[in-house]
């Protein structure tokens, strides 16, 4: 290594800033899917709750049964509220070179994945999503499953469009890579 003098600047000026990008919120219809899923889980748990309250000896003996039941319903009430606000926090943005996904109510999270690091994309559609014509897009990288983001609640045609867009990008990048 030659000891040549260099004085490069560390922060590059005038580069795009992700925090200024317009974040597109998730389709409103997707909240219905979340609500349906929550209601189904709620029903299953509630049935199980009442059955076990009467079936097990040690639970039958509890004196503060009413309090417990009230707490149980309050818990679910907050879960519903949480679901709504957490839903409102979700949003995405496709830029020229990367995809941004924002989510999280108590801990705001931003995941950024450059297109030239995406290994492949998958389009998923659940049962309830199909009713509303929605789909989700999952992006896989070599960085590990913790950050392989799964953006839910696209309109199906949008999802297909974005998938096409990103796939083309990746294809183009692959051909230039060395």
């Amino acid at each position: 290594m030659s000891e040549k003098f260099s004085n490069e600047k560390i922060f590059v000026k005038n580069i795009p800033e992700f925090e200024n990008e317009q974040i597109t919120p998730i389709e409103k219809d997707y909240y219905n899917v979340i609500a349906i899923n929550t209601v189904i889980t709620f029903l299953i748990f509630t049935v199980a709750y009442f059955i076990s309250l009467n079936a097990f000896e040690f639970l039958r003996k509890i004196e503060f049964k009413l309090l417990l039941t009230v707490c149980y319903f309050v818990f679910w009430f907050f879960l519903f509220i949480y679901g709504w606000y957490a839903f409102k926090k979700r949003g995405y943005c496709f830029r020229e070179h990367d995809v941004i996904y924002k989510f999280g109510l108590f801990e705001e999270t931003v995941v950024l994945i450059p297109f030239n690091r995406i290994q492949h994309i998958a389009l998923h559609q659940g049962i309830f999503s199909r009713i509303y014509g929605l789909a989700s897009l999952q992006f896989y990288t070599a960085g590990g499953s913790t950050t392989d983001i799964n953006i839910k609640g696209f309109k199906l045609e949008d999802a297909k469009k974005f998938k096409e867009f990103v796939s083309n990008k990746i294809e183009k990048i692959k051909s230039k890579e060395f």
């Binding site: 705001e108 999270t109 931003v110 995941v111 690091r117 960085g143």
Partner: peptide, 21 residues
């Protein structure tokens, strides 16, 4: 890098603090 994850707990918002991976 493969991806970047920035997180900010709401109780750190007013202090302008956050985490990055």
């Amino acid at each position: 890098i493969q991806s970047v994850v920035l997180t900010q707990p709401i109780w750190h918002k007013k202090y302008n603090l956050g985490n990055v991976t």
